[in-house]
């Protein structure tokens, strides 16, 4: 190999790596340092002294922080489980390559490509107790719940917040699963059918185990993106009622850009980062295993 050839790859990678160092690594390290400082932008434009672990310790005695942790966990579980189940169901429905199914697959792009901020507003409109269409439909179908103001009850508010996320992600997950289903070997399924297994048994004992690696991957990816979710909190509920939909992400935003408490916000952000990187680590391990094949 020529000696010049050795540098080519670095020249090729340089622009991308420099941009990423500037836009990700720099803020990443800066936030880390800030998380050990006392710094309220309202009082001083430059950081004050280091306070050790004070900001982190403060988080653990802060009821608002713990609330946001529970909201995030609740939201993540609901949105991950439901978007995976609905996504898998849609994939099984559209599995065969018919004309109608191809048309439907194109439609699936729409919810996914829609701006998350818009998802929040659109569902907020539909859930309005006075003129919301979804509220009217639900009142008709479930008359015993007609008094429920959907975004006014803490648990329902989190549920609908999760619903906006599910609505956008289930179609994406369905598309991933359709691709995966198409790549599965058909022989085992056919053999099981010949041996007298019914449709459900074939799915449960053959297809599902074969899909498992992809289900885990998608589950991890969805978990990461659920923890990252932000836009719909602002546009659907604004964190309310009370603090019922204040996710950790939203809480960091409030501390940073409503109270301008940069030190505390950075510490909270780092707690968020640590959690996310645990999931990201597992995800990347899985993905790189596939890479080396």
């Amino acid at each position: 190999m020529h000696s010049r050839e050795k540098y080519v790859k670095w020249v090729l990678m340089a622009p991308a790596l420099l941009i990423l160092i500037g836009t990700t690594l720099y803020p990443f390290l800066y936030s880390f340092i800030t998380s050990f400082r006392f710094w309220r932008l309202t009082r001083s434009p430059v950081p004050k002294g280091f306070v050790g672990l004070d900001n982190y310790i403060r988080a653990f005695t802060d009821a608002g922080f713990w609330n946001s942790v529970w909201v995030t966990i609740f939201f993540t579980i609901v949105s991950v489980v439901l978007s995976m189940l609905i996504g898998l169901a849609i994939a099984l429905i559209l599995e065969r390559a018919t004309k109608l199914n191809t048309f439907m697959k194109s439609l699936l792009i729409f919810p996914f490509a829609m701006a998350p901020a818009l998802k929040g507003f659109s569902w907020r409109f539909m859930l309005n107790p006075d003129y919301g269409i979804l509220d009217a439909i639900l009142d008709f179908c479930l008359p015993f719940m007609s008094d429920v103001v959907w975004l006014g009850e803490p648990y329902w508010a989190v549920f609908w917040l999760a619903m906006t996320e599910i609505w956008g992600w289930a179609p994406y997950i369905a598309l991933v699963f359709i691709g995966a289903l198409g790549a599965l070997p058909k022989e085992t399924q056919n053999a099981a059918k010949v041996d007298g297994a019914n449709t459900f048994q074939v799915f449960w004992y053959i297809t599902l185990p074969q899909l498992m690696p992809i289900i885990i991957m998608v589950g991890l990816l969805k978990t990461i993106f659920s923890v990252k979710m932000f836009d719909q909190v602002v546009t659907l509920t604004g964190g309310g009622p009370g603090r019922a939909t204040e996710t950790l992400n939203y809480y960091v935003y409030n501390q940073g850009f409503k109270f301008y408490d940069m030190g505390y916000a950075s510490a909270l952000a780092y707690i968020l980062v640590t959690t996310m990187f645990i999931f990201a680590f597992v995800y990347v391990r899985f993905l790189m295993k596939g890479e080396q094949k």
């Binding site: 990678m13 991308a16 790596l17 990423l20 836009t23 990700t24 690594l25 720099y26 803020p27 990443f28 800066y30 936030s31 800030t34 990461i224 923890v227 990252k228 932000f230 992400n249 960091v252 935003y253 940073g256 850009f257 940069m262 916000a265 950075s266 952000a269 780092y270 968020l272 980062v273 996310m276 990187f277 999931f279 990201a280 990347v284 993905l287 790189m288 890479e291």
Partner: peptide, 23 residues
Amino acid sequence: NALMVAVLSSQFVPPVVVVLPFF
């Protein structure tokens, strides 16, 4: 591999962490 993982992981940094210092 380490570099590729770094590129991939940068997607997982929550936007709110990025925006604090840049603000």
